[in-house]
């Protein structure tokens, strides 16, 4: 199990962060709520398949859920 604090939050996107963010935004252009949620599910599954490692996925899910009340 990796150290989640370091490995999951570290910046891997620089110097392309702004471009990647705008690609994510653009992917949802013109979709209604239902279609957006369905796209998110497909994207998450594809990304999970790329990550592949169950321990990392566990840590990512845990980290994302920590902010549920925020």
């Amino acid at each position: 199990m990796p150290d989640t604090e370091i490995d999951l939050l570290r910046d891997n996107l620089s110097p392309h962060g702004d471009i990647i963010y705008s690609k994510l935004i653009a992917a949802y252009d013109g979709l209604d709520e239902k279609a957006s949620a369905a796209l998110s599910a497909r994207l998450i599954l594809l990304m999970a398949n790329q990550i592949g490692t169950p321990a990392i996925l566990d840590a990512l899910i845990e980290t994302a859920r920590q902010y549920e009340d925020a």
């Binding site: 999951l8 939050l9 570290r10 910046d11 891997n12 996107l13 620089s14 962060g17 963010y21 902010y67």
Partner: peptide, 11 residues
């Protein structure tokens, strides 16, 4: 996420 995550701060 930016309160903790450097990658999100950069975004």
């Amino acid at each position: 996420l930016a309160s903790d995550a450097p990658f999100a701060q950069k975004l």
